[in-house]
Design a protein around this nucleic acid. Structure first.
Lengths: 198, 198
DNA sequence: CAAACACATTGAACGTCGTTCATGACTACC
DNA sequence: GGTAGTCATGAACGACGTTCAATGTGTTTG
């Protein structure tokens, strides 16, 4: 009967992550409460802390899954698009990013809204997943700007990612500059369409 | 002796806004606490709620000032730059936006981090101040794209603002894509430099 | 000027939050 | 089957924004 405890903990861990994800999907990160979560999982309040360092760690676990999905979505947008010119590929990826964010707004927002102030260590998988995303962007850019060196390409990559992120972020939120999804896509096309033209 | 109460309330209101602003400047929006604020202002905890609907209303007051400063900064960046081509003016404004955000990070972040979920009514001055900012961007764009109609220009304006905002946002925060300020400026120049070229 | 009323101010108390930890229960090993 | 060690439990803690009965002050009237 060895490992009974570990099995139980692993099961609880899994259940908590799934319930937390469901809650974030349904009502956003701000609605995720430890007590409610424990009740839904049928466990004690304190049990959460046997399995996760704190609530932030639990959210980071959810974010890990989200990042996987987001990465897969962006990567998938390139399938069957290898023949397109670099510019069109950039736009496809950006539209995929927009699509994921629009269809999974709460999960996507949790990626950026989670508290990372205290934990000075951003999880390494966070940076790695981001690096993979950046690599997808860098490839078409390298074709567009063959004369640029590694550092210049890296900067351009970050610039474009941040640009698209900004348009999606503000476009999706009512407050600042809320706009229908088609128009966000149009904005992205307009801005990215100019890249590399000279 | 009529109006003694109102004078006191007005003075308290002013003092609270200034203390709140100082606190946000020093340690960010998340560090602003009602009890600490009351202590610093030398008033009762409940006194805050005699003068403001809730803490969010107080923060919105601070944000009002911030928006004024930000607008003035961006507007000021155009002084003596009227002779520059539209593209260069866009870049100047964007660099001014970056400069304000970098020099007043906490105040600037409060503009976007304040809770506006419950209060369905975004203050009208919020939208107005934003509209003025957008107008500054729209002017050079209208020169760059004389063939575009009002709606197209509006979309382009929002697109560029959001792009620049995204680059500044992610560039200034350690987490995602933190980068020295010069490099953020360089990113902006790269992206905006392409606009309107064809 | 004084008295009585209206209203502003107060801070203890409320409900909620994340997190902790003494206690009691259960597992694992002999 | 008994015992030592480990784990789960949920009441309790401190901090938070917010409220409201009680207290104090300003204003008005006789």
């Amino acid at each position: 009967m060895a490992g009974k405890v570990e099995a139980r903990r692993a099961a609880l861990r899994e259940k908590l992550v799934e319930l937390a994800e469901a809650q974030i999907v349904a009502e956003g990160l701000g609605s995720l409460k430890a007590r409610q979560l424990a009740k839904e999982a049928g466990c004690a309040l304190g049990a959460i802390y046997n399995v996760f360092e704190d609530m932030t760690a639990l959210v980071l676990e959810v974010n890990g899954r989200t990042f996987q999905q987001l990465g897969a979505t962006v990567r998938g947008s390139l399938e069957g698009a290898e023949h397109l010119d670099p510019n069109a590929r950039l736009i496809r990826m950006s539209h995929a990013y927009l699509g994921y964010a629009a269809d999974n707004t709460h999960l996507w927002r949790a990626l950026f809204d989670v508290d990372m102030s205290t934990e000075n260590a951003v999880p390494q998988w966070y940076m790695q997943a981001l690096g993979e995303l950046f690599a997808l962007i860098a490839a078409p850019l390298a074709e567009l700007f063959p004369e640029k060196d590694r550092d210049e390409l890296s900067l351009m990559t970050r610039a474009l990612f941040s640009s698209v992120h900004g348009m999606v972020l503000l476009g999706l939120q009512q407050r600042i500059s809320g706009v229908p999804r088609d128009q966000i896509a149009e904005m992205i096309s307009q801005v990215l369409g100019q890249i590399g033209k000279n």
